[in-house]
Design a protein around this nucleic acid. Structure first.
Lengths: 142, 142
DNA sequence: ATCACCTGTAACCATTGTAGTTACAATTGT
DNA sequence: ACAATTGTAACTACAATGGTTACAGGTGAT
């Protein structure tokens, strides 16, 4: 299965918070841009908040970036909204037969390969910062 | 969510087919090594067969590699058992609001980044061949 | 020809993650 | 007090997954 759209939504939210930094950015406003339910937005913002990427104003309403866009990279965002812990992008089959040469060693062999592939992906995400996303977004609009 | 354990199972099967190339390798035998149900094995072998990686002997029983282990890389295996089409590792949120600068352009921006990250992962898989897996497996057993 | 064995596949089930929705307590400015 | 908003719980519908049973069809041995 593919990686949850929460990741895409999170990036959307963060980009919007930067571009519309004058505005109030309530969950309802953001939901209008993402085209989903405000609760979905609040859930994602909750995760981003726990990760220290955004601040919210309960009662008042609205959210804002907790850091400069260039100090937020996509790997941080990915980790913030990802349920699975790092190192588990690829699922292993459990309890292969220890009486079999393959069953006895496959886990460790796969673990090495899988971690390498996962890291390669994450490194690409780490290279991209929010300000690059915003730049690309604005540029693409012309 | 993580990538289906079908991938791990598929690699397990292929490694076993190579190491136990003298044996008959029925789905039941393989299931014993993987520790799952024979039908699950047959399903995965079916996918590997369609991808041209293995041959089976209906009636007779057993499966075997259709190519030399060094001519099978993990990206091929990955594609063989993966349900999602290439380029969709990361899910996009659908129908963002075209009236919003962000909503109007986020899809394309994300697509570029997501594809880059996905390719980085796949490139790592493509580097690893089945004979390397088998070598590592056997080496780890000592 | 019969028989035992195996594959391929359909059908069904339980479990899990996801995303949308309603509802509401708690918070805050007016 | 009041209106607006966040944070969260609860519920729903849906899809993918992995396990299971069942069975039609192929194949070699006797």
């Amino acid at each position: 299965m593919s990686i949850s759209s929460r990741f895409a939504v999170a990036i959307h939210i963060l980009a919007l918070l930067d571009i519309n930094k004058e505005g109030r950015n309530t969950s309802e406003f953001i939901a209008g841009s993402v085209n989903t339910n405000p609760v979905v937005i609040r859930r994602v913002i909750g995760l981003l908040g726990k990760a220290g990427l955004v601040h919210t104003s309960p009662g008042v309403g609205g959210a804002s970036l907790a850091r400069l866009p260039r100090e937020i990279n996509l790997l941080e965002v990915y980790r913030a909204v990802q349920n699975d812990p790092p190192g588990e992008l690829f699922a292993a089959h459990d309890k292969p037969n220890p009486k079999c040469l393959v069953g006895r060693n496959i886990q460790e062999t796969l673990d090495t390969v899988f971690k390498r592939a996962e890291s390669a992906m994450e490194n690409e995400l780490a290279k991209v910062t929010l300000d690059q996303i915003v730049f690309d977004l604005v540029r693409g609009d012309q």
